[in-house]
Amino acid sequence: MTSEGVVNERRSAASVIAQVRPRKLAKVPFVELAEGRLQGVVSSGSDVSRVYVSSITAGDHGLSCRTNNNRPCGGLSGAYPCNHIGALVDAAVAQYGPDRVARYLKVELPDGGENLRAGLHPTTAPDRAAEVFSSFLRHLAYLELPPSVEPLPELHWFPAGKAVS
């Protein structure tokens, strides 16, 4: 086993997987594959104080999109995706790559393999905005912590950079 392998074996964190290509954080500040959903927060194009909490469930491709103050998205119509869902998918593909997102959502990619949206067969999903927004706020709270090299017990599972010797 290499010395790097030994170091990694003793750590409680994994190396960060680099994003596939850069994405605009101002448009989609938060995107994750978690809780059986592709979920995230999408900025409003018309109001700087409003964001949309959007998600797609894995398997049945259930769509959900609501504002941060729990109002329904006017663009989401049953199983027809709104622009926020489209922006979320685009950000996820930029962050994780089309193959990884497709595997997670259980989507068959059409020929060419890049158009993930075309492989979705959406339905209406139960509202998960509160859970997704709570996860986003929890991630934001870590940005307010002072810089430290000491481990945070609640982040022992979180991917980390190179090991500190």
Results as ranks from 00 to 15, higher is better:
164 V>Y: 12
55 S>Y: 01
35 E>L: 10
58 A>N: 09
94 A>M: 14
125 A>R: 02
59 G>A: 06
149 V>R: 15
7 V>P: 00
134 S>Y: 06
141 A>M: 11
80 Y>W: 04
148 S>A: 15
162 K>P: 02
116 L>K: 01
78 G>N: 05
51 V>W: 00
152 L>K: 14
51 V>D: 00
112 G>C: 12
91 A>T: 12
110 P>T: 05
37 R>N: 12
119 G>F: 03
27 K>Q: 10
30 F>H: 10
152 L>N: 14
26 A>I: 05
125 A>Q: 08
70 N>M: 14
60 D>G: 10
79 A>W: 00
93 V>L: 07
37 R>Q: 11
134 S>I: 00
110 P>M: 04
24 K>C: 08
106 K>V: 06
155 L>K: 13
78 G>R: 11
18 A>E: 13
25 L>R: 12
125 A>G: 12
13 A>P: 08
123 T>P: 00
72 P>C: 03
117 R>D: 05
23 R>Q: 05
35 E>N: 15
124 T>G: 01
152 L>V: 15
151 P>R: 14
31 V>M: 04
21 R>G: 02
155 L>H: 07
35 E>D: 14
142 Y>P: 01
95 Q>C: 10
8 N>A: 12
32 E>N: 11
52 Y>V: 05
160 A>H: 13
63 L>Y: 03
149 V>T: 11
86 G>A: 07
64 S>H: 04
53 V>E: 00
43 S>F: 02
129 A>V: 08
2 T>E: 11
123 T>Q: 11
64 S>W: 00
29 P>D: 09
131 E>T: 14
118 A>L: 13
57 T>P: 02
72 P>T: 04
130 A>M: 14
77 S>Y: 08
153 P>T: 06
8 N>E: 10
79 A>G: 07
151 P>S: 09
139 H>I: 01
42 V>M: 02
144 E>H: 10
38 L>H: 04
117 R>N: 06
102 A>C: 09
89 V>R: 01
108 E>N: 12
56 I>L: 04
139 H>G: 03
61 H>E: 04
22 P>M: 05
158 F>M: 11
112 G>D: 13
150 E>S: 12
90 D>E: 09
97 G>P: 06
24 K>I: 06
155 L>F: 02
4 E>C: 08
104 Y>T: 05
112 G>N: 11
102 A>R: 01
143 L>V: 06
159 P>D: 00
89 V>G: 04
165 S>E: 08
44 S>L: 12
4 E>Y: 03
63 L>Q: 05
16 V>C: 06
143 L>I: 02
28 V>F: 01
80 Y>C: 08
4 E>S: 13
103 R>Q: 13
71 R>M: 11
139 H>P: 00
65 C>W: 03
39 Q>C: 09
6 V>R: 10
7 V>C: 02
56 I>Q: 01
99 D>T: 14
134 S>W: 02
92 A>V: 01
98 P>K: 10
105 L>T: 04
108 E>S: 06
36 G>Y: 03
4 E>V: 11
162 K>Y: 09
62 G>I: 07
3 S>E: 09
73 C>Y: 05
98 P>V: 15
161 G>M: 01
149 V>W: 07
12 S>G: 15
8 N>G: 08
37 R>H: 10
143 L>M: 09
75 G>F: 00
80 Y>A: 14
110 P>H: 08
112 G>T: 10
